[in-house]
Design a binder for these strands. Sequence first.
DNA 1: CGCCGGATTGAAGGTACTCAATCCGTGTGG
DNA 2: CCACACGGATTGAGTACCTTCAATCCGGCG
Lengths: 267, 267
Amino acid sequence: MRQAAGGCEYFYRCSFRVSHFAKAHSVQQSVSSTRLKIVCSRCNLRELCLPVDLSAEEMQQMDDISHLKRGYARGDYLYRSGSKFHSLYAIRSGSFKTQVLHEDGREQVTGFQMMGEIIGLDAICTDHHTCDAVAMENSEVCELPFGKLEALSRKFPSLQRHLHKIMSREIVRDQGIMLLLGSMRAEERLAAFLLNLSQRFAARGLSPTQFQLRMSRQEIGSYLGLKLETVSRTFSLFQGNGTINVKARSVELLDMPALRTLVGKQQ
Amino acid sequence: MRQAAGGCEYFYRCSFRVSHFAKAHSVQQSVSSTRLKIVCSRCNLRELCLPVDLSAEEMQQMDDISHLKRGYARGDYLYRSGSKFHSLYAIRSGSFKTQVLHEDGREQVTGFQMMGEIIGLDAICTDHHTCDAVAMENSEVCELPFGKLEALSRKFPSLQRHLHKIMSREIVRDQGIMLLLGSMRAEERLAAFLLNLSQRFAARGLSPTQFQLRMSRQEIGSYLGLKLETVSRTFSLFQGNGTINVKARSVELLDMPALRTLVGKQQ
DNA sequence: CGCCGGATTGAAGGTACTCAATCCGTGTGG
DNA sequence: CCACACGGATTGAGTACCTTCAATCCGGCG
């Protein structure tokens, strides 16, 4: 639980440090403003968000087009469905949910994004966003103007390929969710959800077995195609099983193999 | 049903009028072979599959990289999950389904693709296909080697943008399916499915109200997250309603507003 | 003609939903 | 400092919807 060197207040989520999100927040920028120059080349999330094989010069040009935007609090919109598309956003710290709204008021959470992940890809198609992106906690993003990104990716094949991979990865992710929504039962869905979170926390150097949920039961339910009561009941079931420990939004995975069996096994 | 002016053979889908998919296989190529030169610039599906604003020279280069592959029959695989990625495929005639398989044998149909649509985007991410593509009838595809497509899209910004739009469109489509699977009831799902088909047939100059399904009840069910019996029952319900006419795989939409109301309206 | 696979229909059962009461933790005001 | 209010989470009871299992139908093909 060490303090990161060089300007820790950069991450005002120091509070979280005690628990989980821990040290992922070590960056060298100074204080606040809504729009700052950032340095991709020195970003600790680089390997999550940029291709590894950019030259120094290429990296420099990435730095030139991207800007840090800070100060998003829980409930703030990064963009709204219908708004004009300008940029993709790389999540620098914090987390967001994306949701699509139906005319009749129904809403479906389509994803929970955490740092190092890129959102806004849905908007390229129509030049307008097709979903909302809402902060789930205090968050920061790197804005990547898409026109400039495209120009750069014409110059740098490795960047181009990376951009394509990011979009493709999103498509594959969505396929997985379709499988989940189309053919899994409540327990299987929740197990898959927990394992997915676990894996993504692990990829960020956080504990894969102990973490804080940033989303409500209602939001989890929307994402998994279940009602919040069902989510709650299933959590309780897992708790009774000894599969997990859950208390409000803090979760501990006790028996990952059991969760994997649930997800992998028919019926 | 008016013929478009200026080169009506541009739309050779006149034939569909008689007996739907019928002779969809009339291409200007001569006889059979598995791999032929094609001419995007003269392809009647161009506006579905390529950007409209390519110059003659640019179009020529597209012609150079793409090849027609024919002879896919119902049940044939265009590619399989796990196989190495080389190319995207534009469907020239016929139709395909894409499906993801779970270790435990469960399968989820993730989409039904018809002519003018491009498949294979999921494979970019890992360089291996993550789903199967299976022909639902006699079909032909244009193979687009992805490396060459990337190279070309570095040279032609409009092609680059188009490629991005295609990928983004796929992401948006998937969001819609998540909404469907996550929060709609059986009737709403089937109504949404029929309206979607209707719209896509219309975009191809075919009847939006009368068409042949190329997929079984089982496949529809997998796509919609329902069992085949439920699909069948819901068809019967709509039939009883007077909303549609359905007999085996031939469908007639009698009351589109009713279908729209079902999809748009809460509960 | 009879078989076969796909589609339809029926009856019974199960899973998740709805509605409603209670609990719990946090923050607020007395 | 405690009481209270509030929103989110949990739990319970009854119900609706979809599934399961099974029988029958239908059309195409050998």
